[in-house]
Design a protein around this nucleic acid. Sequence first.
DNA 1: GACCTGAGTACAAAAAGTAAACCTAGCGGT
DNA 2: ACCGCTAGGTTTACTTTTTGTACTCAGGTC
Lengths: 165, 165
Amino acid sequence: MTTTTDLRLDRDTTNCSIARTLEVVGEKWTLLVLREIWYGVSRFSDLHKMLGCPRNLLAERLRKLVEHGILATETYQEDGSRSRSRYVVTAKGNDLVPAVLGLLQWGDKYRADPAGPAVVNRHRGCGAALSVQVRCERDHHVPAAEVEIGPGPGFRTKADPEKVA
Amino acid sequence: MTTTTDLRLDRDTTNCSIARTLEVVGEKWTLLVLREIWYGVSRFSDLHKMLGCPRNLLAERLRKLVEHGILATETYQEDGSRSRSRYVVTAKGNDLVPAVLGLLQWGDKYRADPAGPAVVNRHRGCGAALSVQVRCERDHHVPAAEVEIGPGPGFRTKADPEKVA
DNA sequence: GACCTGAGTACAAAAAGTAAACCTAGCGGT
DNA sequence: ACCGCTAGGTTTACTTTTTGTACTCAGGTC
């Protein structure tokens, strides 16, 4: 990853999509809660059992994820129990899959268990293993060294934070 | 994302590549430090200026990233100054690009500034815009709904954490 | 009416994050 | 030889989060 324009030092850093995403999912446990729900765990007590995190944090993280529309609650009722609610991932939540699989892929490569990864992801139907890739619109595979960062429409400088590029 | 085998409730969660990755880069500021360095900022004081984070945290995060081989230090010398060190991303660090661009892409989609994103990423040379995608080995584009999770070689159950699948 | 279970809330202690002051080389000027 | 400047950190005192555990609450079973 390199840069041609000098975004370096007078860039206004308040408009950053990475930071904005981390505001929502960057706290401890949040992405692991999502992991469990993707893996099929949906009830509060099961999530707590799997994660081993404090119950109040689990409640808070779930509340925030629901607030942001990443999770939704569904009510369900088992025979001989009262109705309860469970958590499911929305389409907005599913759009986090590439980012999270990116983290998973890095962990598989650099911090793997001696026995190998605990889970593998495949393309349902086709059965082939998955990878997360950076591609350009012309469908070239883009390695990190060929990523070029340039100012976008919302680019601002520190000197003049009103004016957009 | 769905699951066929029941990974749900008796899965041993201690072998997880997502969690392992977050142990290294999941603390506050860490991914933003990497962002700045990818954007071309490399000196301690410049990083501090751009991020506005506490200096001790910046020092600690840099130390941890270097320890894990995600960053490396280089010494350089400007005219009339003593030699100093700056931080550069290693190949191991660059392998985090897909994950971080995944976060950026989500932020661009759901939490964009009214004016648009501050930066855009392009394929150097070709000039086309980038996207992060999940693909299978047969090169199908895989939407979240078609991701199938199954036990991998390091899969263990809670009941019997010794035995791998 | 006593007891169980799922889904939380409440709270004290520990850890992490924050802000600002302080330290420490080397340089260049005098 | 001393002075002050600068880059790159440490230290310290304070605030906020996270942790672990205990408690509540509502509906259903016995």
